[in-house]
Design a binder for these strands. Structure first.
Lengths: 225, 225
DNA sequence: TGAAGACTTGACCAAACGGTCAAGATGATA
DNA sequence: TATCATCTTGACCGTTTGGTCAAGTCTTCA
C-alpha cells in the first residue's frame, strides 16, 4: 500500500447535507475501527456495516480505504497537537503545566480512540504522518522547549532537559488512553471513573511539578454548568 | 480469527538441532514483523522470506500464523513482567526504584520490538493475553503495590497511590521504545545514543524519586568488561 | 549403505478483501 | 409533477493471503 503523506488542510468544499452527514458518520465509525484493529485489521466492509450503509456507498464518499484512513488521521492531528500550543511563557509555570496535563488527560479520557489511532500510526513507523511530525511537530517542540528553557533561565523552575520533560508528560498522559485495557484489567477502573481520574491526574501533575522543584496546586475537575 | 489465550508455559519438548534452530529463527523474524506491522499487517509469506525458507516450510514448524504469534507473545511475556518482580521491600526505596527504572529503560533500548509488540496487543484490547494480565499481572501489581505501601507506612517515602506510581513508570519507560519513531523524528536521537539515553533515564528517575520525596542517585550506565 | 524418519518445496485451493460498474432509488428544483 | 443530479446498491472481478498436499531431498543411525 502506498503511503501518501497527510497534511493538515481540511478541504471542506461545499457539501450537501447528506454528504456532510454521511462523511462524518463514516469518519466516526472508521476512527473506532482503525483505532482498535489498525489499518490492516480494519475492513471497509466492517466500517460500512457499522454505519449501516453498503460498502459500495461508502466508496462513493471516499475513493479508497487509504483515503478514509488519511482523512481520519488528518482530522485528529491538529486536535492532537493543539494543547501544547497553549503553553504560555508569561504565566505561572506550575499553573501552565498543570493545565496542560489536565488538557491531555481530558483528551485521553474523552477521545481514547484518537489517542490509540495515533499510537498505532507511530508504532508502525508513522509512514503517513512522517512529514507532519518532522516539520510541524518538530518546530512546535522547539518553540515550547524554549518556553521551558526561559522558565529555567528565570529560575522559576529547576534545570531540566525541556524535550525530555515534554516526552514524559506525553508518555504518562497518553498511557491512560493507549493502555486503558491493561489498566482496566488490573484495577477494574478507567478514566471514566472520577476517583481514578483524579488520582491519575494528581499523580502525573505531582511527578512533573515536584520534578522541577514546584508544588502541586489543587486539581479541579471540569464542572458542567 | 480465534483468540486462543496465551499461557506462560514453554512447552519445550526434545527438539532436533534443525528444529530448534529454525523455530528460533522464525520466532525472531516474526517478532520483528509483528511488532512493526501488527498481527493483520504481517504475512507468513513475509516472515518466511526474511528467514530464507519457504512458506510451506514455515508452516511445517508452526501450524498457523496465529500459532506463531502466540508463541512470540508467550516468549516475551515473562521477560516483560520479570523486572517488577525484583522490587525488594527490604532495600532502599531510592535504589530499588532507580534500579527498576534502569532495567525497564534497558529493555526499551535493547528490545524495542518486544515492547512494541506488547503495546500493539494491548492497543487492540489484549485479546490473547487478557487472562494472563487479569491473573498474573494483577497479582504481581497487588504484591508490589504492597511493597510501596510498606515504604510509605515506614515513612521512607511520601504517601502516593502505589498503582498509579507503577503505571507512570511503565508509561515513561516504555514510551521510549513504543514512540521511538516520533522521538527520533523530532530529536534525531534514540536510546542507542548514550547521551540521550542518560538524559532520558535521569529525567524519569528524577520525576519518580522527587515525586515521592527522595533524591536521585547518580546514574551509572552499564559498562561492559 | 540403505531404509526410516525428518525436513523442504512448488503447485494448488478457498476465503476474504479492495475496488469497479451499471442500473435503480431518492431528493432537489423549477 | 417532470427533470436532472445526487445518492444507493448488488453483482462482479482480480489479487492477496492463510493453509493443504503430494512428492521430493536430506539426516540419522542401525
Amino acid at each position: 500500500m502506498a503511503h501518501r503523506p497527510v497534511s493538515l488542510k481540511n478541504t471542506t468544499k461545499s457539501m450537501s447535507r447528506i454528504q456532510e452527514k454521511n462523511r462524518t458518520r463514516i469518519l466516526e465509525a472508521a476512527l473506532v475501527e482503525f483505532s482498535r484493529f489498525g489499518y490492516s485489521g480494519t475492513t471497509i466492509e466492517k466500517i460500512s456495516s457499522v454505519t449501516g450503509m453498503s460498502k459500495s456507498n461508502l466508496l462513493y464518499y471516499f475513493s479508497s480505504k487509504a483515503a478514509i484512513y488519511e482523512a481520519v488521521l488528518a482530522n485528529i492531528l491538529d486536535i492532537w497537537l493543539a494543547p501544547l500550543k497553549g503553553l504560555n511563557p508569561e504565566k505561572d509555570p506550575a499553573k501552565e503545566l498543570a493545565a496542560y496535563i489536565h488538557h491531555k488527560m481530558k483528551m485521553s479520557a474523552e477521545m481514547p480512540d484518537a489517542s490509540r489511532l495515533f499510537a498505532n500510526e507511530i508504532l508502525q513507523g508513522a509512514p503517513r504522518i512522517r512529514k507532519v511530525l518532522e516539520e510541524d511537530l518538530k518546530a512546535l517542540i522547539a518553540e515550547k522547549s524554549n518556553v521551558i528553557q526561559q522558565w529555567i533561565n528565570q529560575e522559576k523552575i529547576e534545570p531540566i532537559d525541556p524535550v525530555q520533560l515534554i516526552f514524559t508528560i506525553w508518555a504518562m498522559t497518553q498511557h491512560y488512553a493507549d493502555f486503558d485495557t491493561q489498566i482496566r484489567l488490573v484495577t477494574g477502573l478507567g478514566l471514566e471513573n472520577p476517583g481514578f481520574r483524579i488520582s491519575a491526574e494528581e499523580t502525573v501533575v505531582r511527578l512533573v511539578l515536584r520534578g522541577i522543584g514546584l508544588q502541586s496546586p489543587d486539581i479541579v475537575l471540569e464542572t458542567k454548568p
